[in-house]
């Protein structure tokens, strides 16, 4: 290859965003951890855990967890796709500025990587007394964290403006 203009500023974030969306769905649909103790089994899902917390009742805590592990990452992913999908086809999405601003704002509140560490700590804590098996969601969550981090590094508002502006 003789000429290479660097990575496409639009295609890469969009591809990562779509990947993240797929992984996000997997993480929420499939079991996170399977837990066995004295012949009893239980499966933990991300959303079910939050619902459990809500019902305990700890609604405030449940809201915090819901926002940081579900809503914020989802918003992040949705915004990525919202911004980059029209750009891929050479169009500028409505409220482009607001969307870009929101991506930057939501980023610190998407705490999936920390949640993943929490999963690890909880699993190790329980592993002494119970059998813990990581479900598909745990693996996809691990990949999702990496993909989101990569997507974050791929978002360059200045380059976008260079392209759009």
């Amino acid at each position: 290859m003789l000429d290479h203009g660097g990575r496409d500023p639009v295609a890469a974030p969009l591809a990562l965003g779509i990947t993240a969306l797929i992984l996000f769905v997997i993480s929420n649909v499939f079991p996170l951890l399977e837990f066995g103790l004295s012949g009893q089994h239980d499966t933990a899902y991300l959303l079910a855990g939050i619902r459990q917390l809500y019902a305990q009742p700890a609604p405030l805590l449940a809201s915090v967890v819901l926002f940081t592990t579900v809503l914020a990452p989802l918003l992040h992913i949705a915004l990525l796709i919202y911004i980059y999908l029209p750009l891929q086809f050479g169009r500028r999405p409505p409220a482009f500025v607001a969307a870009l601003r929101l991506v930057q704002r939501i980023l610190p509140w998407s705490m999936l990587e920390i949640f993943l560490l929490g999963v690890l700590v909880a699993a190790v804590k329980l592993a002494e007394q119970a059998t813990i098996v990581a479900g598909p969601a745990a693996w996809s969550l691990g990949v999702l964290v990496i993909v989101l981090a990569a997507a974050a590094t791929q978002v360059h508002p200045q380059r976008l403006w260079d392209r759009v502006g």
Partner: peptide, 13 residues
């Protein structure tokens, strides 16, 4: 936040 998540997962599990 990791401790909050640990509690969440333990509660769920």
């Amino acid at each position: 936040m990791v401790d909050v998540y640990v509690v969440t997962i333990l509660v769920a599990l």
